[in-house]
Each structure stands twice: as structure tokens, then as C-alpha cells.
Amino acid sequence: MADSVKIVDGRNSFCPGPLMELIKGIRQEPVGTVFEVWSSDAGSAKDIPEWVRRAGHELISNTQDGDVFKIQVKKLK
């Protein structure tokens, strides 16, 4: 994993939850930042790509590592 990837550890986060944590990160970090969201909620593998598409960012990968869903997103604007 590249050093510049920012981990958003949303495991066991019911509220605000992994997507809201990603939105927080995207709001506060510069364009070009790559985030990797860790989530224990299967819904994240669907919700996060949907928001990324609507918000105009780039979905880099969407994988499952054991019980953890790992979704990489690049901030584009």
C-alpha cells in the first residue's frame, strides 16, 4: 500500500458510519488524496461506490479482506 493512502477506519461504526467518515475525510483533505475505507458493514461495498459516482470522485478498488470491506477512493475535485 502506498504511504500516501489515508486509512478511514470505519469498522464497527454504526453512527456516523463508514460513508460519513469518508465524506468527512474528503471534505478536509486536498484534491488527489487517496482514501481506503475499512468497513465491517456489507452495505458499504454498495453505498460508498454509489456516493463516489454521484459526487464525481474516482473509485479505485472495492475488495473484501476477511470480514472487512476495503474501498479505495481518490478525491478528484
Binding site: 454504526f14 453512527c15 456516523p16 458510519g17 460513508l19 460519513m20 465524506i23 452495505g43 453505498d47 454509489e50 456516493w51
Partner: peptide
């Protein structure tokens, strides 16, 4: 609401 449902808690 910011995410894909009307509250963060499902």
C-alpha cells in the same frame, strides 16, 4: 441527508 438513507443508523 448526506448519505443514501435518511439517517446514518440503518
Amino acid at each position: 441527508y448526506p448519505i443514501g438513507r435518511i439517517h446514518s443508523l440503518e
